[in-house]
Design a protein around this nucleic acid. Structure first.
Lengths: 232, 232
DNA sequence: TCAGAAAGTGAACACTGTTCACCAAATTAG
DNA sequence: CTAATTTGGTGAACAGTGTTCACTTTCTGA
């Protein structure tokens, strides 16, 4: 151990970060273009002109490396959505912008977004407590927090149904956004998939979807429930 | 070629179908449990007591085999949703049941569902015409058709906003359903992810989500638009 | 019965992620 | 300043993977 408590990253540490940076940069480049399928350790090594085994001095495994790619992606996603949520604009615009920005950001890096949701849990996990703590600190969780605040604001402004649970509502909005993001990255001509020939652009459909999502949260003064409210 | 035009599948063809069936059965078993990661040709061959190369007499590639698994999964999904859409029940129940059934079916076979949406399209596809034709004949497309009909029925009953385009609305509902299905299969404790300790069951949250989705489509006599309607 | 097709095989090719003994260079300790 | 030790980097190897191909066996249609 360097036992280095000085603030300067200094000599040796610098080179290390440099080649580490080169690795993730190369990984970022090929992953963005070809996804996990096209990213092999050997190819990565070739691209940065090192031996394959050298990479293992910087990352414990391929999965660990990819995890870092996902992390920085979600960091940017959170930053973008967070910025919009605090912007100086009417609530209705900000709300919709959160959803559309989420989807657009996902579409810019489809492989990153898909990879972030690629670890299917076969067996149901029993855990429950402590989970929230970890989640709320993660980028995903903090982006989720932005949504919860937005629902609360809408309720306090009287445009959203005050009886809705903000957490459940935010999850619903997240699911709806995630769903469209996923469909758009997997079926690129999704919005144009129509029997008629009048084309609908991606951005137009995203706006339409965001609108529908918010209509579901809105308050019409009267009980407009289909019949719900979760019970068991 | 057998040039066999008789209706009886008969002697040789029978054995062929039998071992072919054994292959997909084994594949189904391991894929359901461990997903694409756990399914290797060699393991499959071992399971059915054949040589690995034998499998290539029945399937051109591993991908082709998996495509068949996805196909039968979506066939069942369509059949279930289709049955519900024609059931003898009030519209509001049928509508919600379509969404919840979709999600529940996905959760029963998380790997199948995830695999069906795993081919990320990196570059935007230029095509547009002819796409609808192929889509509307696929299982995905026919399940989508059920949704479109449901939206139309809701509009004719006066409970859904008649100004909404049925196709765009159905896509929005699909996206919302897909999103929850995806989130539930990837973060199994998704509904229970709350700061408070009062647990929310999966089924309760699915019902909540479905309710919100339909509220977005509802008609309140007055223009309740956030401001939308797609333009470009 | 017999030619030809179909079914099945084992060895090989070109990959993959990962490990491990080894070597050289840089850093630290005495 | 030298000696010891950590660090960075390497090539060869292991255990996998999907896939192909020459080959044999088995079955079938005429």
């Amino acid at each position: 151990m360097p036992t280095d408590l000085s603030l300067e990253p200094s000599p040796a540490e610098r080179r290390r970060l440099k080649v580490r940076g080169a690795i993730i940069e190369a990984a970022e480049r090929v992953f963005a273009k070809e996804g996990e399928a096209g990213l092999s350790i050997r190819r990565l090594a070739e691209e940065i002109d090192y031996s394959p085994s050298a990479i293992y001095k910087y990352f414990g495994s391929k999965e660990e490396l990819i995890d870092e790619l996902k992390e920085v992606f979600f960091e940017r996603l959170l930053s973008r959505v967070g910025k919009i949520s605090c912007a100086d604009a009417p609530f209705s615009e900000r709300g919709r912008a959160c959803v559309t920005t989420y989807i657009v950001t996902a579409m810019e890096r489809p492989h990153h977004y898909a990879a972030a949701f690629s670890n299917v849990q076969g067996a149901p996990v029993p855990v429950q407590t402590k989970d929230w703590e970890a989640f709320s600190k993660s980028y995903k969780g903090r982006a989720f927090g932005v949504l919860v605040d937005m629902v609360r604001e809408g309720q306090s402004l009287g445009v959203f149904d005050p009886e809705l649970d903000p957490y459940l509502s935010a999850k619903s909005v997240w699911a709806a956004s995630h769903g469209l993001a996923q469909l758009m990255t997997h079926l690129p001509h999704f919005p144009a998939l129509l029997p008629t020939d009048q084309p609908v652009s991606a951005s137009a459909f995203i706006a339409f979807h965001a609108d529908l999502v918010f209509r579901g949260l809105q308050w019409s003064g009267e009980a407009r429930h289909f019949d719900s409210t979760p019970e068991d």
